[in-house]
């Protein structure tokens, strides 16, 4: 087993564990007060103009009409095409879209590599995956390289972002650029990279070691695996935390109904002790949230 094999196992493990920890941490934060922002995508019949169930007289007597399709209509173009950036920041979209879409294609390429690793490159599904990978991979790397170069320039030269970009943002872009550029170089310099990548994939899946891939591929794989370890500790985790910003905050319009689980959760939180210092709050570290919120005496 080579250092590259060990790196692969470590980076995949770190990625999965770190993402899970972060997701669990976010998912287990207390139920918060409502802070939705309209349009709310699951509002059936009202999404087009941003309306809510509050538009109904005696809304609590009307069954709520929630639409999963409505949410998909927003989330799918948002994820695939970056519709929000397209609508509100077109100069950024010009670079951000190729970078993101390139990354999707590279992830797709990695999946195809694993399919070939499992089924072999010569027959049936494996052969189709190998052929698809030979198309998807280079396109992904080209798009990603163009996108990241453009993004770097955008960050550096746009008045909007210059001065508001922390050092790590440049590092992240350069890391991504290295990933895409080394991948592209592999496709330029090696006759059929799918063969080497899928062989490496098979070794990982079967816990064996074979002949080392070409050195350009080794460099690229090392970059990819290092990037996987790095991502969960950066703001690039927005690839999954966006689920929370949309579903748990922006579209969270769940009303507090008597006897509901939501009401019970909040009731528990109302027992939390409060220690804010301002005199008018009247907290002492022992009184709980409910005590303070119902203390309406003013001297």
């Amino acid at each position: 087993m080579t250092a590259l094999h060990i790196l692969a196992y470590v980076s995949v493990s770190v990625f999965i564990i770190a993402v899970a920890v972060r997701a669990i941490r976010l998912a287990t934060t207390p139920v918060h007060l409502r802070w939705e922002l309209y349009p709310v995508a699951h509002e059936k019949d009202r999404m087009s103009y941003g309306g809510s169930y509050f538009e109904d007289k005696d809304w609590w007597t009307t069954p709520r009409k929630k639409s999963l399709f409505g949410e998909l209509k927003v989330t799918v173009p948002e994820i695939l095409l970056l519709r929000g950036v397209w609508e509100h920041n077109r100069p950024l979209w010009l670079w951000s879209f190729p970078m993101h879409f390139g990354l999707y294609l590279v992830i797709g390429f990695a999946i195809l590599v694993l399919v070939v690793a499992i089924f072999g490159p010569h027959n049936g599904i494996g052969a189709i995956a190998a052929q698809a990978g030979r198309i998807v991979g280079p396109i992904g790397y080209v798009l990603g390289t163009c996108g990241t170069v453009g993004l770097f320039g955008h960050r550096l030269f746009s008045r909007k972002t210059r001065g508001f970009t922390p050092p790590v943002a440049y590092v992240n872009i350069l890391f991504l650029l290295t990933l895409f550029a080394t991948g592209l170089y592999v496709f330029i310099s090696i006759p059929d990279p799918m063969r080497g990548f899928s062989a490496f994939g098979r070794e990982l899946l079967t816990f064996t070691a074979g002949a080392a891939p070409a050195s350009a591929a080794v460099v690229h794989l090392a970059v990819v695996l290092s990037f996987m370890m790095y991502v969960p500790f950066t703001h690039m985790t927005h690839f999954f935390t966006k689920y929370f910003t949309y579903h748990a905050v922006r579209w969270n319009d769940e009303p507090n109904l008597r006897g509901s689980k939501l009401e019970a959760a909040i009731r528990r939180q109302l027992t939390y002790p409060v220690s804010w210092s301002a005199a008018h709050v009247k907290a002492d570290g022992r009184k709980n949230w409910a005590d303070i919120a119902t203390d309406t005496e003013v001297e």
Binding site: L26, T29, P30, V31, H32, L33, W35, G84, V85, H88, N89, L92, S96, K160, T161, F164, T165, P166, A169, H235, T237, H238, T241, K242, F244, T245, A248, V249, Q269, Y272, P273, V274, S275, W276, W289
Partner: peptide
Amino acid sequence: KLLTRENNWTFLQPLLLSLEHCTRCQTCND
């Protein structure tokens, strides 16, 4: 205190999300 469950359960989750995930794209400015 703003970043603790006890003192700020009311807005902790949305706050953490906004604290940790801004890409500094400045799209919001306009």
